[in-house]
Design a protein around this nucleic acid. Sequence first.
DNA 1: CAAATAACATACAGTCTGCATGTAAATTGA
DNA 2: TCAATTTACATGCAGACTGTATGTTATTTG
Lengths: 210, 210
Amino acid sequence: MQQESARRSNRDRTEATRADLIAAARKLFTEKSYAETGTPEIVAAAGVTRGALYHHFVDKQALFAAVVEQEAAVVAEEIERASPPSLFARDALIAGSDAYLAAMRAPGRTRLLLLDGPAVLGRAAMDDIDNRHGNRSLREGLVAAMRAQTMKKLPVEALTALLAAAFDRAALAIEAGASTEDYRTVLMALIDGLSPAPAHPQAPGSARTR
Amino acid sequence: MQQESARRSNRDRTEATRADLIAAARKLFTEKSYAETGTPEIVAAAGVTRGALYHHFVDKQALFAAVVEQEAAVVAEEIERASPPSLFARDALIAGSDAYLAAMRAPGRTRLLLLDGPAVLGRAAMDDIDNRHGNRSLREGLVAAMRAQTMKKLPVEALTALLAAAFDRAALAIEAGASTEDYRTVLMALIDGLSPAPAHPQAPGSARTR
DNA sequence: CAAATAACATACAGTCTGCATGTAAATTGA
DNA sequence: TCAATTTACATGCAGACTGTATGTTATTTG
């Protein structure tokens, strides 16, 4: 007859505790903000003590980074699930855009990923996370469109970053109550504007600044 | 013969103290971050005590809001100075874009306005500030371009917000070491893509999602 | 010029973060 | 298999910070 609480390997214990902490932190970070959530509250929700937290994470910020990482992965997964990778390049971009905007409606997700994330971890760290998850499919879609000649050839990294920034702002605006249709319309117009068409058929000789 | 420190009216005292606090806070908030800057440090730099701070500002966040407000005004001013309001609509947009990117190179400004600002004050509050200052000229430029028929007619608020978001991300990327030319190229491509040209001269009957 | 008020300064309470130390459980290796 | 070591926590503490309450000085008001 073994003990009440079964004998667990250290690896299992660590994994379970880390998961509990991340889950509790995720819940609180999405309900409130990073700054408004204290570690005592997190560990209470996770059913451990602060000692466990600081054993598994170097500081509160590291726990936050783990939460952001996980949440970014979930968002990427939701997008991939909703948007089949085939189709024509432009259709894939549209499907991905809608899936992203839908995924970002999860409560607190915009604040976690778009406000607290960049402020707490810095833009560089967030870029790193985004590039490992969500942005990847966006960039691949853009590259595909360029190769298919349905999109102007432009610096890929910059284009990916700027379109992602527009999507992010759209998600924030929509959550704040703005018209989803308006923002969707503009996003599509921005993407369609990148078609390799005659640039701007207006008065020739427009002065170039700088 | 009057006293050593001249008799000052309350209005002057308040104005001077508030200005000192905002200046000291601005310096520290741009050198470090909002979270890393404590009120004791701020008041020491300003030459007052925390009592003065909490007399003039309801809390640390309110002081931060005042700093952001002022900095946003300075940025808007720098843009207006560098970009004459006349010219053709597109040229004005380009000049304004370059001026914005140049203005955002001031040390710590991107973190203050683009990272800490949204996280601490919220996107709604930042939108409010932006609309009172920087975004105004952008929106007016877009409206002018639309009226001049050199730009597709689109929801103005949404377009302004999304382009502003792209500019913001570009400023962050450039500060992080990315190629200014790359980002400038993409920004111009995004703007030029909004010309009222034949949208995308490709295979007809492309399926519309939703 | 006295009363009221504004502009501060000082002192205090509560909370939080990170670390140091202590303890129980698991792993190692002889 | 069992003692030594390491891991996974729990507990307690030190420093710092925020916001507030209270006291004091300068200004304004009637």
